[in-house]
């Protein structure tokens, strides 16, 4: 009997087993599929349809047009896009700079301290988000604690105007998103083999060089994961700029909200802005991921 032919034909029993297995996996993934369809695919479909309609004072007219996209691509919304990207970048950068030492410290602590410190990182989540932001408003306000402390210490002569500036937005953004950077960084640094640092120093690298040549490259995965967790939500931030910022620098999240909230409502432009945002994020993510994968594969290819 021809061996290869034999391999390619399935017996009735095998076919039945494969069918059964397929059925099982469909059945088991049904709840999440239904969930995703109802709360992800359908809403986005609605958003896509709305972005192609014509705006009316309160509602939309069911006339299909690319008007909303034309309006956006004409450059009218360049500034909020720019501001949002700048904000997301600065927030991510500060989170890395501030989060890395913290993650490193926790990762190198004893088992007992590790858990205590990790809980301390998570504790802020137990307090309501809005309350935390309002606390910052009080803290940073012209007559707030920060200014009073600085004034009484004689470090400044008149109160700093922090509240309602882009800096106030950045401060609170970094504060809110810092844990999302620390946790993935921690999980990578914790697995790091610290004898590699001994090896680097043994070979002539000072502490600083050993860090930049060994520790930092080996924690790249954590930086990558943390940056995604911070950058993407920061890009669409709405509440923090709304509560901490001013009306002269509106971020994309605020623009989208105003398009829906203010009369005349403009559902199509709001929808189109959301979709363009989504596409940009998807492109960034996919590019980042493919660079990352390529590097990994190249490493494996070279090894072969």
């Amino acid at each position: 009997m021809n061996n290869s032919r034999h391999r390619n034909t399935f017996s009735q029993l095998e076919i039945r087993q494969v069918k059964k297995r397929n059925l099982q996996s469909w059945f088991l993934s049904m709840p999440s599929l239904i969930w995703l369809t109802a709360f992800f695919a359908v809403p986005y479909l609605i958003v896509i349809i709305y972005s192609l309609l014509v705006s009316d004072i309160y509602e939309v007219k069911f006339l299909f047009t690319l008007g909303a996209y034309r309006e956006i691509l004409s450059g009218a919304y360049f500034k909020p896009f720019f501001l949002s990207f700048r904000l997301a970048l600065i927030t991510t950068l500060f989170c890395i700079i501030l989060g890395y030492p913290v993650a490193y410290l926790i990762a190198r602590s004893s088992e007992k301290w590790k858990n205590i410190l990790l809980v301390l990182i998570i504790i802020p989540f137990w307090t309501n988000f809005i309350i935390r932001i309002f606390s910052w408003r009080i803290f940073l306000s012209t007559n707030g604690m920060l200014n009073e402390a600085l004034l009484s210490m004689g470090l400044i002569n008149q109160p700093l105007e922090i509240i309602r500036t882009d800096w106030a937005v950045i401060i609170v953004m970094v504060y809110v998103y810092l844990p999302y950077m620390i946790l993935p960084l921690y999980s990578v640094i914790e697995k790091l083999d610290f004898t590699l640092l001994d090896a680097a120093m043994d070979l002539g690298a000072s502490e600083r060089k050993a860090f930049f040549k060994v520790t930092l490259p080996l924690s790249r995965e954590g930086i990558f994961a943390g940056s995604i967790l911070v950058f993407i939500p920061a890009l669409g931030a709405y509440i923090i700029p709304q509560l901490m910022g001013n009306q002269n620098s509106l971020y994309i999240g605020q623009i989208i909200t105003y398009k829906i909230k203010n009369i005349p409502r403009n559902w199509p432009v709001a929808s189109a802005l959301s979709l363009i945002m989504l596409i940009i994020i998807a492109v960034i993510l996919l590019t980042g991921f493919s660079i990352y994968q390529k590097r990994k594969f190249r490493r494996m290819d070279e090894a072969r």
């Binding site: 083999d193 004898t195 590699l196 001994d198 090896a199 680097a200 120093m201 043994d202 070979l203 002539g204 690298a205 000072s206 040549k213 060994v214 490259p217 080996l218 070279e302």
Partner: peptide
């Protein structure tokens, strides 16, 4: 400090840098 001594070590688990090729590991110093 270790990086100022003309002494080099072979570690028990080798401690090769996993993000560098064999060549780069050797070239490190």
């Amino acid at each position: 400090p270790p990086y100022k001594r003309q002494v080099n070590t072979i570690f028990q688990n080798y401690s090769l840098f996993p993000h560098m090729t064999v060549y780069e590991n050797v070239a490190f110093a």
